[in-house]
Design a protein around this nucleic acid. Sequence first.
RNA 1: GGCUCUAUGGUGAAGCGGCUUAACACAUCGCCCUUUCACGGCGACAUUCACGAGUUCGAAUCUCGUUAGAGUCACCA
Length: 507
Amino acid sequence: MKKIRTRFAPSPTGYMHIGNLRTALFSYLIAKHDNGDFILRIEDTDQNREVKGALNFIYSVLKDTHLEYDEGPDKPGKYGPYIQSERLPIYKEYADKLVDLGGAHYCFCSEEDIQAQREAAEKKGKGFKFVDPCHHISVEEARKRIAAGEKYVVRQTIPAEGITSFDDAVHGHIEVENSTLDEQILLKSDGFPTYNFANVIDDHLMEINCVIRGNEYISSTPKYNLIYKAFNWDIPMYVHCPPVMKSQTQKLSKRNGDASYNDLIEKGYISDAILNYLALLGWAPEDNEEIFTMDELIKRFKIERINASPAIFDQDKLGWMNGEYLKRMPLEKFHELAMPWYKKVLTRDVDLRELSMLLQTRILFFAEITGYDKKVLNEGAEEATVEHVPSIVDFIENTLEFNPELYRHKKMKTTPENSLEALYWVKERMEAFDNYSDDEALTQMFIDLAAEKGVKNGRVMWPARVALSNKASTPGGCAEIAHILGKEESLRRIDQAIKDLQNALNA
RNA sequence: GGCUCUAUGGUGAAGCGGCUUAACACAUCGCCCUUUCACGGCGACAUUCACGAGUUCGAAUCUCGUUAGAGUCACCA
């Protein structure tokens, strides 16, 4: 069998859609599974949509996701150039050839003409299908008019009758009647090809023999096949991937402000985790494993196991997977990644390594350190509401608002009253204690204290933790927090808590 | 509206005609561990595969229809 060649062909829009990235991943995996080539091609045939810097953006995303391509604009191969706007003469040449072969014709209709036809049809309440009057202009005459400077487009010629079919690796055999196909424009009046034409020409010229793309191209695939046939070229294998949805009825989209790859990175998700999660959207391995390295994915990925139905993007599961990646990495690595996030919210001189140790098993993604905005789509509501999730470590930097009710805990058997008593004990012990960087010694100190007073651990530890944080839940218990805060600050907070509690109880 | 695709729990999904009284994972809810939260451990969570016919000794699995959703019908990709 010939070496498999797949391609990823994004438009430079400056935005990496999750569904798009997933298509790139699948293309990469399919190629590499069989030791094939993965090509990057830039589809920039619409000059109106040019976005500056978008090219570098694509390179950088592919780089940090480790989707390494064998050929691309910045990695020349023998099929270049890999940017469509640099291939204009090629498309012109093949368009003319296709006209000669009877697969296309020149058309001189203006957009206004067509628009008028469409409106007339709509008025009558009929479905519109453009019937091109230029069909009957002979090639010779058309070329004369073109030579004379008339504006024109090249339009695909579709046989009036017959059926065009193709086989899709995920959807099976698909048949369409030619009469339902539109005679789409192949070469625009500005001399640029449309996507519909350029992708066929390029795929053939670049010897792409396995085309992996989104589901939305299924309906135009028969038209592409007609072009392949007119040229008498080999038809590639097709793999049409189901869409990635945000809900049953809505696609994930930029317009709705849905998460893109970059948004996820900005929230502190790990790129490996994102890719791992994406692989599982619409694809399933043979066994029950879910956490895979890229190499494992390459080994296991089989086209037959791509699911045909749409997949809903589940933030919760992504979060879980990201958490798994965080837990599995060495503490050193976690600490290094967490550092920039700490810097955004913590200026106090505290033991950040200790903090990393506590956070590694507790956070799902790094933005939990700084706090973040979360979009909540309520049942039936059109607009998502934005909720701010506070930082998980906010109590370290700032003294949070005092609330005596936090001291009341049924299971710990604590009340504001007996907490005040416990805090006197705690204050005395902590003043006499010095080894704040030793978690075990610190914990032992609390345990001994409880034992001496003849109470359960919780009776002294719960009040201590609340006094140190003013929070119902914190990463780590009183010993860890005292460690992080250090002796001086810890004592300051205990004193403050005692004062606050006294005031509250007197009032 | 025409054409095309899809349909297993809240989510991702396994299942490919009998081994299924439907795996596994996320979420949720219990319980245990425990100085809170988390981690970890244990357990609960679809009598049923959108619905209706049909084929078959036997169907989530095959066929047809219905319904629902999505895609497409641009000088966008």
